[in-house]
Design a protein around this nucleic acid. Structure first.
Lengths: 205, 205
DNA sequence: ATTTGATAATTTTGTTTAAATAGTCAGTTT
DNA sequence: AAACTGACTATTTAAACAAAATTATCAAAT
């Protein structure tokens, strides 16, 4: 037996899925509420029954993706053989995430630095999760005596994430865009793994 | 005795200096050619006798600054005690350069990704100089046996510069600006030195 | 409680106009 | 001839407005 609330959640999910597909293929600004509604054979008004506005719909999709991403990260980092492997897992998972959802982030390219605060919060949440999981990984390795004691693992992970981010950024600077071109993603990934190698070695005895 | 060409060069220099002061205090877009001419008690038309247009004037100033920056770097990297010191010198010199000329780069904030190609060339030139000088430093330390042999020093330096750049970038992301706020420069500098520490250690035996 | 058609409100896009500023040039001064 | 200028033109920027597209609302229907 399915309650009314269940039904509502199912419909919400259906809308999220349809919206995700539209955003993924056409980007935020070239997706209209009419089209999303059309895909589901619903009236546009109903979308507003389930979501306050278009940006909130986009954000809801993004939140879902972020949740899946973090879940994925948690699963992979549950066990690992050494620190490098743990960090490499993060780099890989992020890479796959970006590749898969590349066009979804069209919103970022268009809206650039004026992203709504909520989106920055989601990004911050992702980063916080990465920070927690990776610094936990450092602690584990530290306790095993594989690396020398680290006074502040969070600071180290934060720095590493910044550094990895730099590899992404310099791949786009002096281009007209802020978000990397799809063709550069592989190159970025390779450089990141190299950086990781050196950085990890720098943490060793 | 001063030739006509000397005189022309002197006047060119005077214009560059006046333009630099205006750009430094008011930024590119809030500086008019009339004002620069006024500062020198010259007609605006004369500026166009010496420089083809406003952007070329700005670029000429920038080129001069870049030359001084690179010269500075060469002097400092002529001798050093260890690799960390050499890299730290680069970070420090760049830091001081940005702090000193902070407002001059207003053009970057405004124009963002649509900077004229020539400016990207100057930036590339600076980066090339950094690359050459720092990879030479690596070679020196390698020959002294202070670090383990490096197959491709340029690649390593390139990566490090990207990573250091990431520290700058993350200090501005989710802010409305692309160029860091002046208040963040010290924080960026500190984080960079920390990153440098780890990175260098990663290159050691 | 869920859904919609019709309608209102807002955002985006394009156009016009005026003001500010960049850029030119014929002619003057050194 | 090289250095320079006043007066002019051309371009860019900003503001104001209108039309079109799209978002968002709501009273009524299921």
């Amino acid at each position: 037996m399915s309650s009314a609330v269940d039904q509502q959640d199912i419909k919400r999910e259906k809308i999220l899925e349809a919206a995700y597909q539209r955003f993924l293929h056409y980007g935020y600004s070239k997706t209209t509420m009419n089209e999303i509604a059309g895909d589901l054979s619903l009236s546009k008004a109903l979308l507003y029954y389930y979501f306050p506005d278009k940006s909130q719909l986009y954000i809801a999709v993004m939140r879902k993706l972020a949740g899946e991403y973090i879940q994925n990260l948690e699963n992979e980092l549950r066990q690992f053989d050494n620190l490098k492997e743990a960090f490499a897992a993060q780099v890989d998972i992020q890479h796959n995430f970006i590749v898969k959802n590349y066009n979804f982030f069209d919103f970022f390219r268009v809206n650039e630095q004026n992203l709504p605060d909520t989106i920055w919060e989601i990004i911050a949440e992702i980063r916080r999760a990465e920070l927690v999981l990776l610094s936990a990984a450092i602690r584990v390795e530290e306790n095993k005596g594989h690396i020398k004691p680290v006074e502040n693992p969070e600071q180290i992970v934060d720095l590493l994430i910044d550094a990895l981010h730099g590899v992404r950024v310099s791949a786009v600077s002096h281009k007209k865009v802020m978000f990397p071109q799809k063709e550069h993603l592989e190159e970025i990934h390779t450089k990141r793994l190299l950086l990781l190698n050196i950085f990890i070695k720098g943490l060793m005895y």
